[in-house]
Design a protein around this nucleic acid. Structure first.
Length: 220
DNA sequence: TATGAGATTGGCT
DNA sequence: GCCAATCTCATAG
């Protein structure tokens, strides 16, 4: 028997009151994005990821990111340009979507100047709009679990490798947004699920937000 | 050319 | 807690 807070809520009540009304939503332009990967990873916490699809608008508040900097052995771009990672070398604000473990797609935002391979992995969202569509795609009614984790996030947001290389700042259906003024308390930790460069504290998240992934000590 | 590991998740023990 | 699913790349032969 699901608990009340796990059940689907009406669209207008699904944001835990942390996000401003949709009317305040606006697109981020590239000039607002920090070029530096770590600064971008921090900057994106509290911003919105929006995907306008046939079923309507899907959006979520970004609550967890990881930085994959240049000269980082954990980064897909560490050994140079390949067909898979080429989007990491684009100008900041492009999507890098890759498949992991043969099963799940993960979404990154490219960073650094063109030609430098780096990016910010989006690890978790707090769903804002299109919750019922996300529930159908994810096969669960648990709003907390819809986009908690990078593979879940991509599935909920209807993002797959077709979006690889898309410019998130070009006025297209997949974009980055900002809502009203909401104070964000950012925590940092080591990154999740990697072995190389495991000691670097390049994961950022909104403190105490229940939509953040990872064990409790990495969410506090 | 073959094989193993990886920025994960869901289902089962 | 363990394990399979199954794609891309690095490394070995």
């Amino acid at each position: 028997m699901p608990q009340p807070d796990e059940l689907a809520q009406p669209e207008e009540l699904s944001t835990l009151s942390k996000v401003s009304t949709p009317s305040a939503l606006r697109r981020l332009h590239r000039g607002e994005l920090p070029s530096d990967t770590v600064l971008l990873a921090r900057y994106l916490i509290g911003k919105l990821l929006v995907h306008d699809v046939l079923d309507g608008r899907l959006s979520g508040r970004i609550v967890e990111t990881e930085a994959y900097v240049s000269d980082d052995a954990a980064s897909h771009a560490y050994r140079g340009l390949t067909t898979r990672n080429r989007s990491m070398f684009l100008e900041r604000g492009h999507a890098y979507v890759y498949r992991i473990y043969g099963a799940w797609d993960c979404v990154n935002v490219s960073s650094e100047p063109p030609g430098t391979g780096a990016g910010v992995l989006l690890r978790a969202l707090e769903p804002v709009q299109g919750v019922t569509v996300m529930q159908a795609r994810r096969g669960t009614t648990r709003v907390l679990d819809l986009a908690r984790g990078p593979g879940r996030l991509a599935l909920a947001m209807q993002i797959d490798r077709r979006e690889d290389g898309v410019d998130l700042c070009a006025g297209g259906p997949l974009w980055l947004g900002a809502g009203g003024a909401a104070a964000v308390v950012i925590g940092e930790s080591v990154r999740i699920g990697i072995t190389r460069e495991a000691e670097r504290r390049l994961r950022f998240y909104e403190r105490a937000n229940p939509f953040v992934s990872g064990p409790p000590r990495l969410r506090a």
